[in-house]
Design a protein around this nucleic acid. Structure first.
Lengths: 339, 339
DNA sequence: GCTAGGAATGTTTGCGTTCACATTATCGTG
DNA sequence: CACGATAATGTGAACGCAAACATTCCTAGC
């Protein structure tokens, strides 16, 4: 049985109290920055803390106080850009607010039960709130009971959430992209979708369909893909085989790279023969050939918003109004009017 | 003061014990899977656990046992591919081994003190081991005392680590890349470096220099950049202005995208006029135009190795021999013999 | 000088577990 | 059938801290 690695167990409040000639309670007060302590006393305590190298024992503190200040994040284990960018935002806010973040990851394409497991792991760890960075719906049965216990925020637009609310408007993204292509004069817009395992993939597809219908055009069949550039490449070959396809809405920048390569290999140039608009605006989007027209998602802001929202819920304070985070169309060189 | 959100506080071992008609100790034994329990008793306990929805209270358990099974990871808050890919590996092993992962992030270009802060936050949280996913050297003074207390693993090759060892051989990467270009017949190799804040950036540069010298060529001046495609683009313009530059070793794929775009804009084609080799093999590398010749770093494996190493250290077991993780040169279309 | 009242500090208790040890049940053996 | 050995279970204490309440100190006002 491995035990603590610090040979002589770490100094405790008692040690500090003794060294400073006060009670542990006073030490506790100084540490947690309470007011009713004489400056001189506080100085003595702080000095003792410094000298002994005392650190609060988080487990003990949270056992006593009932608070852990732990934020849980459930992520699907993928090195997708969006996920890690969002995490950066979450982490930043958490640290600012004195929370720590623990992650529970779940295999890609994991089942509902894996999510429950992840959620349970976080709860066991004492997470006071959970951010679901995952293709998951609150409407799922087993989820309700968990959400009741632990405040939860979801990254996806979803109606009917149980008093919880999401931060990104996925359907605005699809609308922006599709209407851009339409307004350029394209008759119709094809769509390379992301993996349907992901909620946003479905939302984008549905919105794309709806926008087309609003404009009186019958949506062509979806070309399914799975977020990877490879799958984009395959989809691109399919599109290249469709002579009258002049505009494609690709659900992610990464896939767009694949689509464009397939198109070029088939002798169709972008944007002269085919316009491509995608989603995310990853750092490389501007360095594709041609540079990608894309709908930017402000991922870090999304992460920040999610984190402050969940902290608001935890601390039961009025939710700081999240100024709406707008996706933004960045027009570059991969779209043009039809020939 | 917000308290627990579960209105009626969660069931404890006592509740389970009462429901199952046993002592709390027995409940504890069943939960932690010890052997000395009659199957029938275990079943009763498990039933009670199930019915009450009991979950171990991690804070209480770790206070009593002295163990937290928490792994700390210090990351620089960047959405760089490498970082998130490594994290995936860490997370996977941690979960397998029953550890949870908490992250402390640090601003890009943060000072040494920010790292100490992050380390301290993790220690306070009870991290039993820390993985440093950061441009940091063990040789730093303040670090020694921390490492003594808490087992630490660094992602970077470094001689003189305090009994700790790293997992990737950054210098092998640079050697692979530079020698590939040389063996193609290029007279010399230019280098676009990453941000010198990062250790691997420096190691790659030094190795590149050394390899050139070994081959009897005087290294040209380094072209400094900072990992971003934009900086790669700027570096690319510099290179385009050097008529006899025929080969470039770029320290990351992302920068290579920028370099290539600048080169093309200046009328120099890749690989006919200039060969480009980079590092990482991100998903998009194969979809650059031309497809990138690059040195693959098996990031997830690196993460897995780091995690199992740190767990070995925590549990004071013989370190599972990490089969050496070799970087691998992937030859695609961005390199060719000089014209 | 005495008292009220607030600021500063101390004491006690309990958070939910696990540990170390004590006790009781169960079984095979001579 | 009693005995010891081993398996199964129980008991008390302790982990390090913060909450609640209790006490002491100081100051100001009359």
């Amino acid at each position: 049985m491995p035990r603590r690695h610090n040979q002589k167990s770490a100094p405790s409040q008692v040690d500090v109290a003794r060294a400073a000639g006060v009670s542990t309670q006073t030490v506790s007060r100084v540490i947690s920055g309470q007011s009713n302590v004489r400056p001189e006393t506080a100085r003595r305590v702080l000095a003792a803390v410094e000298e002994l190298g005392y650190r609060v024992h988080a487990a003990a503190a949270s056992l006593a106080s009932g608070r852990t200040r732990i934020l849980g994040v459930i992520v699907v284990s993928t090195a997708r850009y969006s996920t890690s960018a969002i995490t950066v935002g979450i982490e930043a806010v958490a640290t600012e607010e004195g929370y720590s973040v623990t992650t529970a990851s779940v295999a890609d394409h994991a089942t509902r039960d894996s999510f429950f497991d992840a959620f349970d792991r976080l709860e066991r760890q004492g997470a006071e709130g959970v951010i679901l960075l995952a293709p998951f719906s609150f409407l799922d049965p087993g989820m309700d009971t968990r959400i009741e216990r632990t405040p939860t925020v979801l990254m996806h637009r979803l109606t009917g959430g149980v008093g919880t609310e999401s931060v990104v408007d996925q359907s605005a993204i699809a609308r922006l992209a599709t209407e851009h292509l339409l307004s350029l004069g394209h008759r119709t817009v094809w769509h390379v979708s992301g993996d349907d395992y992901w909620l946003e993939s479905r939302v984008r597809r549905e919105t794309w369909e709806q926008v087309l219908i609003e404009h009186g055009v019958t949506p062509p069949p979806v070309i399914p893909a799975d977020w990877t550039p490879e799958s984009g490449y395959r989809a691109g070959r399919t599109i290249a085989a469709i002579p009258d396809a002049t505009a494609v809405f690709v659900a992610s920048d990464e896939m767009a790279f694949g689509v464009i390569r397939a198109l070029h290999e088939a002798g169709r140039t972008v944007p002269d023969d085919v316009s491509v608009v995608s989603v995310d605006d990853i750092a490389l989007a501007a360095y594709a050939a041609p540079a990608l027209t894309t709908v930017r998602q402000p991922f870090e802001a999304v992460g920040r918003a999610a984190a402050s929202r969940i902290i608001d819920m935890i601390e039961e304070r009025e939710p700081t109004p999240v100024e709406p985070i707008h996706p933004e169309l960045i027009v570059r060189a991969s779209t043009a009017p039809p020939a």
